[in-house]
Design a protein around this nucleic acid. Structure first.
Length: 763
RNA sequence: GUCCGGUUAGCUCAGCUGGUAGAGCGCUACAUUGACAUUGUAGAGGCCACAGGUUCAAGUCCUGUACCGGACACCA
C-alpha cells in the first residue's frame, strides 16, 4: 500500500475567490491586535525603540458612504502602513470620522423639511442637534464597515470623532489659547453670508460660478455707473473714481453733489480711491459697503458710513422705501421699471457674463454682509515660544502666515508632488483673516460668553427679526465678553455660534494623539510621518493643520504630504450621479476583490494627477491575484513533499535568480520610500508575472521533472524563496490574497504566522 | 486677469537626474486538457502637439506658439 503523500491544501484546487476569504482575514488581523503598535511591541514583532511611522487618516464624513476617492486614499495609506509595519517600524495609523457640521446639518434640515415641512427654528436647537446626532450615529457604522472592507490596517482602539470628548477638549483649549494670544478676535467685518443656509462661510468655501445677467448703466447725477445688482443701490451715496482719472478731475474728493436717485434726491459725496479701475466701464462707481468686499475696504479707508440694505434672508430693508419687504430676486424687475420711468437708465447690456460667489457646500448665492464674527488673525505678530520647526527659532517674531510659509520653505514639510509648493505659497499670499464662526447649531460651540442686561436679555445681542418672524443673524456689539469653557455665572449667555469644521480639523494631527494632554502617543508619533490626502483640500485642511500645529505645538503636523488625484472614469470625466459613471468601490470589491480594487487605484496613479479608472482595470488586476494563486499552487505542488531542511547547492542560474529577486526587493522598497507607489506596485507586478511566472516557472519545469536530484532540490529552494519574497513584496499592495496564501504555507517556509507582521525582505 | 498642469500606440496613461519609446485594456494570428482560458507565444499599431535653441546625442533641458484642463481672483 502506498504511503500517504502530503498534498497541497485543497483551497488551491479552485481558482482564487476573494469574497471567500476577505472578511475572515480582516477579522483575524483585527483580533491579532497587530494594527496597534503597542501590541506589536508587546508580542515582540516590533522593537520598543524602533523608528516611529505614523499617519492620521483624513476622517471621512460620518454620514457619508465610501467612494472611489476614499478607496484610493485607503489603499495608498495602507500600503505605506503595511510596508513600514513589516519593516519593523512602530507603525500607527489612526482612524476617525468627521462630523462635517455644515453638510450634515444641511442634510438633516433638508430631510426635516421634506418629511415634516419644518425648519430648524420650528424644532429648536436642542431637538435639532438630537436628530443630527442620531443620524450621525446611525451612519457611522456604515462608513467604518466600508473602510474595513478595503483591508485598511487601522488601529481602531484609537478611533477619534471630531465631536467626541477628547477632541472637544482640544478644540476648546485651542480656541482659548489663540484668543489669549490675540490671534482670535471678534470684529464687525464683511463676511460671506449664505442666505439659504443662514450662516457665514470662509473664503475657501466659496466657489465662483459663471453667470449671465443684464448689466445696467444708470444715470447718477453727472455720472454713469454700471451694475448687475440694482437692488443693492438704494443706499449708495458715495461715488468713487480713480484720483488720476483726468475725465473726472473737475470733481474733488469730498465734494457733495445733489443727485436724483431711485427713491428721490440724495446727497452724494465724491471719493477718490485707487481701487477703481479707470479702464473698467465708465471708471466711476458707487459703493455699497455693507454688501461688497471691495466697497467695504474703500469705506474702511475713508471712514465712510455703511448701511445694510438687504437682510439675512435676502429681503429689502426700509431703506428701499416702497420695495422694502420684497425679496431681492423679485424686486429687481420692479426697481428697473421704476428707474426706467424716472429716466435713470441709460443703457442695458442684456448678456453680461460675470462670476458670482456661491457656497461650494451646496448652499446658495453668497450675499456679502457686515457681521460681528470671530476671526483668526493671520497677520498679527507674536513671539515664538517654542519651536522645533526648521527655520523658526524660539523668540522669533512671526505671524501665522509666516509660520505657514516657513514650515514648508524650511523643509519641515515636504509636499509631493513638489509643484504643489507653488500652489500652497500662492494661497498663503492671498490669505486673509479666517472667519471661523458659523451660525449653524451642529458643531463645537464657541466658548465665549456675553453679559446679559437687567431685562434678562443679552443686552448686546442685537436680534434681527426679519419679515418672516424668524431670528436672523445675531450681532453682538461692544458687550463684555469672556472666553472660557464654563459659564462665568448668572447673567452670562453663551455665543450661539459654532466653529468652522476646519477649525477642529486643523487640530487633527495632534488632537487624535490626545493633545492637550502630554500623552506618550503625542511624544512618539507627532509630527506624523505622512499626511496623505486629495489635492483638492490642500488649502482647507493641509494649510490649516500646519497653522494649528506650528502655533500650538511649535512642530509641523507632518513631515511629508502626499497628494493624490481625483478618481475619474475611463474617459477622464468626473464621476457624478448625473453622468451615471460612478464606480462604487464596494461593487468592485464584491466582484473582483479588495486587492484588485486597491491595485487599480495605485498602479499608474502618479501623485497629484487625476486617475482614470475603469472596470476593465480592476478586472485585469483580479487576473493578477489569480496568477499569484496559481504560482503558489505550482510551487507548493512541487515542493510540498520535499524535506526542506537539507541545504541545497545552487547552480549559477539559481544564484542569478536569487540575485534578481533581491534586486527587485530593493527596487520596490526604494520606490515606496520615495512615495512612488505607482512604480513600486508596477515593478512588483512585473516581476511576479513576467519574471517569476513566465520565465522562472517555465524553465523550472524540466528541472523539477528531471532526474538530477540535486538540481531539483536547489530549484525547489529557489522557488520557495521567490514565492515567499514575492508574497511579502506584494502584501502591502494586495494584503488579502497574499495573506490567504501565507496561511496555507507550511510552517517551515515562513518567519511569522501572519504575513502582515512578517519581516520585509530588505532591512 | 494671475498661477499651475497637460498634449507619447485605437482608449487611459507611465517614462526619475538627456543616449534613437513602455504598461494596462483593446486588436490580429497561432497554441494549450501539462500552476493558470482569470492562459501562453508571436504580432500589428507611435515624424513622443508645433517651431526654434542648447548638446556628440532631447518625449526627456531652454524659449516661443497652438489647443485642452485645473486652481486662484473684490473687477463695479
Amino acid at each position: 500500500m502506498n504511503e500517504q503523500k502530503p498534498s497541497i491544501p485543497e483551497v488551491f484546487l479552485k481558482p482564487h475567490n476573494p469574497a471567500e476569504h476577505e472578511d475572515a482575514l480582516y477579522d483575524m488581523w483585527e483580533k491579532s491586535g497587530f494594527f496597534n503598535p503597542d501590541v506589536c511591541i508587546e508580542k515582540g514583532v516590533t522593537a520598543s525603540d524602533a523608528e516611529p511611522f505614523s499617519i492620521v487618516l483624513p476622517p471621512p464624513n460620518v454620514t457619508g458612504t465610501l467612494h472611489m476617492g476614499h478607496a484610493a486614499m485607503l489603499a495608498i495609506e495602507d500600503i505605506l502602513v503595511r510596508y513600514h509595519r513589516m519593516r519593523g517600524h512602530r507603525t500607527l495609523w489612526i482612524p476617525g470620522t468627521d462630523s462635517a457640521a455644515v453638510a450634515t446639518q444641511a442634510k438633516v434640515e433638508k430631510d426635516l423639511y421634506k418629511e415634516e415641512k419644518k425648519t430648524r427654528y420650528d424644532l429648536g436647537r436642542e431637538e435639532l442637534i438630537k436628530r443630527i446626532i442620531a443620524f450621525s450615529e446611525e451612519s457611522k457604522d456604515t462608513i467604518i464597515g466600508q473602510t474595513k472592507k478595503m483591508g485598511s490596517s487601522l488601529d481602531w482602539s484609537r478611533y477619534a470623532y471630531t465631536l467626541d470628548d477628547t477632541r472637544y477638549h482640544a478644540v476648546m483649549t485651542a480656541f482659548i489659547r489663540m484668543y489669549e494670544a490675540g490671534l482670535i478676535y471678534r470684529g464687525a467685518r464683511i463676511v460671506n453670508w449664505d442666505p439659504n443656509m443662514q450662516t457665514t462661510i470662509s473664503d475657501d468655501e466659496i466657489e465662483h460660478v459663471e453667470k449671465t445677467d443684464p448689466f445696467y448703466y444708470f444715470k447718477y447725477g453727472p455720472f454713469t455707473i454700471g451694475t448687475v445688482r440694482p437692488e443693492t443701490k438704494f443706499g449708495d451715496k458715495y461715488v468713487v473714481m480713480h484720483p488720476d482719472d483726468v475725465r473726472y478731475k473737475e470733481y474733488t474728493h469730498g465734494q457733495k453733489l445733489e443727485v436724483e436717485w431711485i427713491n428721490g434726491p440724495i446727497t452724494a459725496t465724491v471719493i477718490k480711491d485707487e481701487a477703481v479701475d479707470p479702464e473698467m466701464g465708465t471708471g466711476v462707481m458707487t459703493i455699497t459697503p455693507w454688501h461688497s468686499a471691495v466697497d467695504f475696504e474703500i469705506a474702511e479707508r475713508h471712514g465712510l458710513s455703511r448701511e445694510q440694505i438687504i437682510d439675512e434672508r435676502g429681503i429689502l430693508l426700509p431703506v428701499a422705501g416702497e420695495f422694502a419687504g420684497q425679496h431681492i430676486k423679485k424686486a429687481r424687475a420692479a426697481i428697473i421699471e421704476k428707474m426706467q420711468a424716472k429716466g435713470l437708465i441709460e443703457k442695458i447690456d442684456e448678456k453680461y457674463v460675470h462670476n458670482i460667489a456661491t457656497n461650494s457646500r451646496g448652499g446658495g448665492t453668497i450675499e456679502p454682509q457686515i457681521k460681528e464674527q470671530w476671526f483668526v488673525d493671520v497677520n498679527k505678530e507674536f513671539a515664538m515660544r517654542h519651536s522645533e520647526i526648521p527655520g523658526v527659532q524660539e523668540g522669533n517674531l512671526v505671524t501665522l502666515k509666516t509660520l505657514m510659509s516657513k514650515a514648508v520653505e524650511g523643509g519641515g514639510v515636504s509636499i509631493f508632488p513638489e509643484r504643489f509648493n507653488k500652489t500652497y505659497y500662492h494661497w498663503i499670499t492671498n490669505l486673509r483673516d479666517w472667519c471661523i464662526s458659523r451660525q449653524i447649531w451642529y458643531g463645537h460651540r464657541i466658548p465665549a460668553w456675553f453679559k446679559v442686561n437687567a431685562e434678562g436679555r443679552e443686552n448686546a445681542l442685537e436680534h434681527k427679526v426679519n419679515a418672516a418672524g424668524r431670528e436672523g443673524a445675531l450681532g453682538h456689539k461692544g458687550s463684555e465678553v469672556k472666553v472660557q469653557i464654563d459659564s462665568p455665572g448668572d447673567g452670562w449667555v453663551q455665543d450661539p455660534d459654532t466653529l468652522d469644521t476646519w477649525f477642529s480639523s486643523g487640530l487633527w494631527s495632534f488632537s487624535t494623539l490626545g493633545w492637550p494632554e502630554e500623552t506618550a502617543d503625542l511624544k512618539t508619533y507627532h509630527p506624523t510621518t505622512v499626511l496623505e490626502t486629495g489635492y483638492d483640500i490642500l488649502f482647507f485642511w493641509v494649510a490649516r493643520m500646519i497653522l494649528m500645529s506650528t502655533f500650538h505645538l511649535g512642530q509641523v503636523p507632518f513631515k511629508n504630504v502626499y497628494l493624490h488625484g481625483l478618481v475619474r472614469d475611463k474617459q477622464n470625466r468626473k464621476m457624478s450621479k448625473s453622468l451615471g459613471n460612478i464606480i462604487n468601490p464596494l461593487d468592485m470589491i464584491e466582484k473582483y476583490g479588495a486587492d484588485a480594487t486597491r491595485l487599480s487605484l495605485v498602479i499608474g496613479a502618479a501623485p497629484g494627477n487625476d486617475m482614470p479608472l475603469s472596470e476593465d482595470r480592476v478586472r485585469g488586476y483580479k487576473h493578477f491575484a489569480n496568477k499569484i494563486w496559481n504560482i503558489s499552487r505550482f510551487v507548493l505542488t512541487h515542493t510540498i513533499d520535499t524535506d526542506l531542511k537539507t541545504t541545497p547547492v545552487c547552480s549559477a542560474r539559481d544564484n542569478e535568480i536569487l540575485a534578481k529577486l533581491r534586486e527587485t526587493s530593493a527596487d520596490v522598497s526604494n520606490e515606496i520610500e520615495k512615495f512612488n507607489l505607482y512604480i513600486a506596485g508596477e515593478k512588483a507586478y512585473h516581476y511576479v508575472w513576467s519574471e517569476l511566472a513566465d520565465t522562472i516557472l517555465e524553465e523550472s519545469k524540466p528541472i523539477l521533472n528531471g532526474n538530477d536530484a540535486e538540481a531539483k532540490r536547489a530549484r525547489q529552494y529557489v522557488l520557495i524563496e521567490c514565492l515567499v519574497t514575492s508574497l511579502k513584496l506584494l502584501h502591502p499592495f494586495m494584503p488579502y490574497v497574499t495573506e490567504t496564501i501565507w496561511q496555507e504555507l507550511p510552517k517551515e517556509m515562513k518567519d511569522a504566522d501572519i504575513l502582515m507582521v512578517a519581516k520585509w525582505p530588505i532591512h
